[in-house]
Nucleic acid binder design. Sequence first.
DNA 1: TTTATTTATTGACATTTATCACTTAAATGA
DNA 2: TCATTTAAGTGATAAATGTCAATAAATAAA
Lengths: 187, 187
Amino acid sequence: MDALFTLLSQLGPISEDLKSQIAARLQFVSIKRRQTVLTQGKICDHLFFVSKGLLRAYYEKDTEEITSWFMMENDFFISVLSFFRRMKSYETIVAMEDCELIYISYDDLMDLYATSLEFNIIGRKLTEYYYCKSEERLLAIRKQTAVERVEFLMQNSPGLIDRVPLKYIASYLGVTRETFSRIRALY
Amino acid sequence: MDALFTLLSQLGPISEDLKSQIAARLQFVSIKRRQTVLTQGKICDHLFFVSKGLLRAYYEKDTEEITSWFMMENDFFISVLSFFRRMKSYETIVAMEDCELIYISYDDLMDLYATSLEFNIIGRKLTEYYYCKSEERLLAIRKQTAVERVEFLMQNSPGLIDRVPLKYIASYLGVTRETFSRIRALY
DNA sequence: TTTATTTATTGACATTTATCACTTAAATGA
DNA sequence: TCATTTAAGTGATAAATGTCAATAAATAAA
């Protein structure tokens, strides 16, 4: 929980009162590899924080699984469209390693937003932060060729390659495993 | 200005007091076709609302212009990464038609956030709304082939094709003009 | 209106990436 | 540990899309 509050306090001032209001609403869970925290077709009712471990969000395209995102230590995550629009999720979120998660329900989050100005500042910054990540991803996918995307990932997230089967990384980058493998072989 | 407040009031309650606080900070401008409202390399210091007209955000890739987004009546827009991260914009925003815009400065916006809980609710919803649009776009680009992307646009934004040179739409969809033209010819 | 410029279309060909088939390697579970 | 499953690598070929070049059409400017 310390890591969580450390992160939040970097986004804006956070009084002791707010801290305890948040803490009172947090829940904790340990999950095993391969367990899901959200299944396609369900509404994402929780905002999660990764204390430990690594998870993967994916959706179906034809018969294949396309990885939409990886979440790891100190990341917050939701299924964005499902959480904000309150509609069924197109994606499933599954643990790739044993994980420790902290989470808060949508309703509790809304309560905090409705009552605390401080919390709004923090929540807004967090939303902006992840919105920026989404835009960056959009830019990367559009701007770069397959080779450039692979290079970018290898330089910026070298750890990922050691923690995740490559086929998931390939689909995250929008290339087939074969192409990913061939591009890697160039180095 | 009516359209703007109508839109905002759909996102959350908005008192007369807040309304006048916002109104006091709004600025208005009419711009001609081809005028830019943001140039690559500058920091995006304003949040815009389109009362009338149509604009295009684009960036350079090698020697080409890639269209990142179109903005039209009732859209809010910023250059996301530049505005939130307070850094130089990689994109330029230019009017494709004569436009009427309403805008507010970054600093004024922050003032409102710092003082009004009501405004935070509205601002957060707005941010969430555009974050969702970004995610949708990401999904569309990744999930669909060129043909599917073109079909999707032709069905969902038929008006755009009549208002904008097709080459910009092609780059928005991430295909060359030639490919776009050939796909269109199938119908 | 006439000319100049920009935009769109089309064909031929090149390149990139995907698909399929197979082999090898690694991880997992009995 | 050994057998089974899953993942990764590689070659041959196919499909999708891009590139270049030429032309036609539309739009803007004189």
